[in-house]
Write a protein that binds this DNA or RNA. Structure first.
Length: 584
DNA sequence: GCGATCAGAT
DNA sequence: CACATCTGATCGC
């Protein structure tokens, strides 16, 4: 869950994915996707009132997010204040202080995030540098190198800060099977079941959230059917999704829900109450999409787990794995990383040091073509070129001041990451996206996630655009092709082995071997739930979760004193360089 | 009565 | 397994 307080250090008059507290004063709002934990305060009466008195404050998001948001009557009042933006179209936005008339210009570009329909990242370019807010995202290894707007000519743009979806930024989540591999496992299970008789049906036990549409589309396509869901209203303008879902219960694949659907299923009933026409009892299996992950050295495992006589869990992740995040960060090499989630004992900095050598040979080509014809809004095509700031490793001071828990951190100087631990795997690059060990004709690949979630169609040349990430941390070797099936009852040492809470030794080994030079962030020994509010009004988040890691204090580090923090906050608010404070 | 917040369950 | 959500209890206005 995101604990991002809503504002970025570089552009503090903007609020993203948070709309309460200090964010009520923002000059512009951004919504990365339509999940409730990123919409806090969005239906608040205070915000509604503010909008009625404002002539300039708007909410910016993708067209799909706008559609999903307005489908919910609680957010309908936003209609006149939403400015939907096309993907990959840099747009200049004026941030106006309506009291003083003071104005700041910023160029924002929406980049597909692969998290759920409409989900985007926001790239901001302005006088305080280039900043990337990722929202929640899932991008396969290598995709970042093909994102045109993160490049300037053949060069990766200088990124000052990344505000990162760090949900799985932990070596325990080293690998999550690709979407294609997971889908193929689910397809096989579904196909084997529903082909037995018309009374064999599948219940996809999905959460009440956007993001499973990719599954519905692909299963619908594969089995030439539609998936039963509770309502279609939100997809009425999205034909690619709409054509694969239905409210007609006479189908063998269901993703309908009911408050007591688990109970229903135990009594061999579907959530919708559907029964066979001739009275024959249905033969139902449930498939629960769940995140499954594997350690760095896990050789072989399964994307389908049988959890009972007719219950299965299937691998499905909305978020990037550790390796995918590592690839993303090591390619962009931002000066700062601000994680949205900060588990205890997390490392942040081994990838932050920007390298000046061996730049990627990026081929500049458009990523996609819009299906829809749409009125072009004024855009600023000339993206701002920031000074090519040579942040060398020593000077970059791999130090991240997270807005989340400054008082609870120990700051440790970190030397350059040697990044050598996985070098022997760096050559594989291009194959991994397709799915480990499953070479296929690119043209026969399932439709890309972004096709459905951004209403864009990508050009067929996309795969030729991939360049070798300069310091990609590869992970999916051919030997790690997951099995499609595993029976938990007969294979007790399947994936779950690596996940149990008693595996801390294993986890720590992973971490140690993988991250030799790290900034260790550790909660204070007492008062772990301490909350802080700085002078800049940014609410500090609580600790996110417990951890199996137990990392001791680094001797050289110290907790900043209260007065130092106050000074820090003042400087942050003023946009000043704060790094010297923590230079050892 | 409404909204915010938290614990708990799924 | 986690994530994203929902429900219900509690509190304050």
């Amino acid at each position: 869950m995101s604990s991002f307080a809503g504002r970025m250090k570089e552009y503090p008059t903007i609020s993203l994915d948070r709309f309460d507290r200090e964010n009520l004063h923002a000059r512009a709002y951004f919504l990365s996707h339509c999940h409730k934990d990123h919409m806090k305060g969005l239906k608040g009466p205070l915000l509604k009132r503010k909008l009625q008195f404002s002539r300039t404050v708007r909410l910016y998001c993708s067209f799909v997010t706008k559609e999903l948001l307005l489908n919910n009557p609680k957010y309908a009042f936003w209609e006149e204040y939403i400015v939907p933006l096309e993907l990959e179209s840099p747009t200049q936005i004026s941030l106006v202080d309506e009291a003083s008339g003071e104005k700041e210009e910023v160029v924002v570009t929406l980049l597909p995030a692969g998290h759920c329909p409409g989900s985007v990242m926001f790239l901001f370019e302005g006088s305080h540098g280039n900043v990337l807010y990722t929202g929640d995202f899932r991008l396969p290894v290598g995709d970042v190198s093909r994102m045109e707007h993160l490049h300037s000519g053949s060069r990766v743009k200088d990124i000052q800060s990344i505000y990162l979806d760090s949900t799985f930024y932990d070596p325990r989540f080293y690998q999550i099977p690709s979407r294609e591999v997971c889908l193929s496992g689910i397809s096989e299970l579904v196909g084997n079941w529903i082909s037995q008789s018309p009374h064999h049906v599948v219940w996809l036990n999905c959460k009440a959230a956007y993001g499973y549409e990719y599954l519905f589309i692909n299963l619908g396509e594969e089995f030439n059917t539609q998936i039963h869901v509770n309502t279609l209203a939100m997809f009425k303008k999205m034909p690619e999704i709409l054509s694969y879902v239905t409210t007609d219960r006479r189908t063998q694949i269901h993703a309908c829900r009911h408050p007591k659907d688990e109970e229903f299923f135990q009594g061999n009933r579907l959530p919708c109450g559907c029964t066979a026409a001739d009275g024959t009892p249905l033969r139902i299996i449930s498939i629960k999409p769940s995140t499954m992950w594997f350690g760095e050295r896990t050789k072989k495992t399964s994307v389908i787990i049988k959890t009972g006589g007719s219950s299965y869990r299937a691998c499905f992740s909305f978020h990037s794995s550790y390796s995918e995040i590592k690839d993303f960060l090591s390619y962009l090499q931002p000066v700062n990383i601000y994680p949205s989630v900060i588990p205890i004992g997390r490392t942040l900095t081994e990838l932050m040091c920007r390298k000046q050598s061996d730049e990627a040979a990026f081929v500049y080509k458009p990523l996609g073509v819009l299906k829809r014809s749409r009125v072009q809004r004024p855009t600023c095509e000339g993206t701002l070129e920031t000074t090519a700031l040579p942040v060398c490793v020593e000077e970059s001071l791999p130090l991240t001041i997270t807005d989340a828990q400054p008082a609870a951190h120990n700051y440790v100087d970190c030397t350059e990451s040697n990044g050598e631990e996985e070098e022997e795997e760096e050559q594989q690059g291009d194959e991994e996206k397709v799915g480990a060990g499953q070479p296929e004709d690119i043209s026969s690949q399932p439709p890309r996630w972004e096709d459905f979630f951004t209403t864009e169609t990508l050009t067929d040349s996309q795969n030729s655009l991939r360049s070798q990430p300069q310091s990609c941390c590869s992970e999916m070797t051919g030997s790690q092709t997951p099995d499609l099936f595993s029976d938990e009852e007969t294979a007790p040492d399947g994936f779950s082995l690596t996940l149990s809470g008693s595996q801390s030794n294993h986890s720590s080994q992973n971490m140690d071997s993988c991250l030799p030079d790290t900034l260790i962030i550790q909660p204070e020994l007492d008062g772990q739930k301490q909350r802080e509010e700085g002078d800049d009004g940014i609410i500090q988040s609580e600790s996110q979760q417990s951890s199996d890691f137990d990392i001791p204090c680094t001797p050289e580090s110290k907790v900043p004193r209260r007065d130092e923090l106050s000074q820090l906050y003042r400087k942050l608010a003023a946009g000043e360089d704060i790094r010297q404070i923590f230079t050892l």
